[in-house]
Computed example of a mutant assay.
Amino acid sequence: MATTANITSETHNCGHCGNTSYMIKKGVIDDTVSEGDHKHGYYESGDFYRVLKCPNCLKINILTYFWHDSMDAEEDVNETLVYPQHQAFPVGLPAKILEYLTSAEKVKSIDVHAYALLLGRILEFVCYDRGAKSDKLYLMLEELAVKGDIPEKLVKVASGVRNFRNIGAHVGSGDLSTAELPIVRALLDAILTYIYSAEHLAAQAELKLSKIKKRRKV
């Protein structure tokens, strides 16, 4: 059991489970070097790495910050999380989908079935967001294909997410492992990228071209 001396004095957000609490200090790695000379004095500069253990999921987080002896106080320290590193989200996503994805990432290391279930929920939201009216997910996906929102090939990709979602939702469907999670996420990302990112990037490109044309006229 951790003693009070081994608990951090400030709260941190766990990169694995998303829990915000005081962390258990496991160690500090000093990667600084001493520079200078006898005449002008010596100073230390370099990176520090703090190893913290989450009391909720019991997994390790690694934070790093740069330090130089000329820095005035700890307020100057800009600490960043280097482990775990999260998978980037596709660009141009609606705020609600981004919120759902962030929530899903928080439970990924806790419950693989809950993670698959949440990704399936995101797929359902995409269908509703694009105006699908059916009450079954596979029918909503077919609606999107008929409307031209997604090609037929992506319907099969989306069905893959749906199948994993069903396994996560029903005990009798089998069990998922962490090995399947990147597959589920990659399938969903393919759909999100096609529907939202391409549209977003096209709009950005049009805006840039419009600005260039205006500059030419001036």
Results as ranks from 00 to 15, higher is better:
residue 19 N to A: 14
residue 48 F to N: 07
residue 22 Y to Q: 12
residue 35 E to Y: 12
residue 11 T to H: 10
residue 17 C to P: 10
residue 59 K to V: 01
residue 53 K to C: 10
residue 74 E to V: 13
residue 8 T to W: 04
residue 30 D to L: 01
residue 37 D to K: 07
residue 21 S to E: 14
residue 33 V to P: 01
residue 28 V to Q: 11
residue 67 W to C: 02
residue 46 G to Y: 10
residue 65 Y to R: 03
residue 16 H to A: 07
residue 69 D to T: 09
residue 65 Y to G: 08
residue 5 A to V: 05
residue 57 C to Q: 11
residue 64 T to F: 00
residue 67 W to K: 06
residue 8 T to R: 01
residue 74 E to T: 14
residue 59 K to L: 13
residue 16 H to F: 14
residue 18 G to Y: 04
residue 61 N to L: 02
residue 49 Y to I: 09
residue 60 I to T: 14
residue 64 T to Q: 12
residue 27 G to R: 07
residue 2 A to F: 03
residue 43 Y to F: 12
residue 71 M to L: 13
residue 48 F to Q: 02
residue 14 C to R: 05
residue 24 I to E: 08
residue 59 K to H: 08
residue 13 N to W: 03
residue 9 S to Q: 10
residue 29 I to N: 03
residue 33 V to E: 13
residue 54 C to Y: 01
residue 75 E to K: 13
residue 2 A to V: 11
residue 50 R to L: 13
residue 2 A to S: 12
residue 57 C to G: 04
residue 17 C to F: 04
residue 72 D to N: 15
residue 73 A to C: 14
residue 70 S to T: 14
residue 62 I to E: 06
residue 27 G to C: 03
residue 68 H to N: 15
residue 11 T to F: 03
residue 53 K to I: 08
residue 14 C to H: 03
residue 69 D to E: 15
residue 13 N to F: 01
residue 64 T to D: 04
residue 57 C to I: 03
residue 3 T to G: 15
residue 56 N to M: 06
residue 37 D to I: 04
residue 11 T to L: 04
residue 63 L to H: 06
residue 46 G to F: 09
residue 28 V to P: 00
residue 45 S to H: 13
residue 18 G to R: 01
residue 34 S to C: 10
residue 59 K to G: 01
residue 29 I to P: 00
residue 43 Y to G: 10
residue 4 T to V: 12
residue 40 H to G: 15
residue 28 V to T: 14
residue 17 C to N: 08
residue 46 G to W: 03
residue 32 T to Q: 09
residue 12 H to N: 02
residue 30 D to K: 04
residue 30 D to V: 05
residue 47 D to Q: 11
residue 73 A to M: 05
residue 22 Y to P: 00
residue 53 K to S: 11
residue 52 L to H: 05
residue 75 E to N: 11
residue 58 L to Y: 10
residue 18 G to H: 05
residue 17 C to W: 03
residue 5 A to N: 07
residue 22 Y to N: 11
residue 65 Y to C: 09
residue 35 E to I: 14
residue 71 M to H: 12
residue 13 N to A: 08
residue 56 N to P: 01
residue 70 S to F: 14
residue 36 G to M: 06
residue 35 E to L: 13
residue 16 H to Q: 07
residue 36 G to T: 09
residue 75 E to V: 13
residue 60 I to K: 03
residue 43 Y to K: 12
residue 7 I to R: 04
residue 28 V to Y: 08
residue 56 N to Y: 09
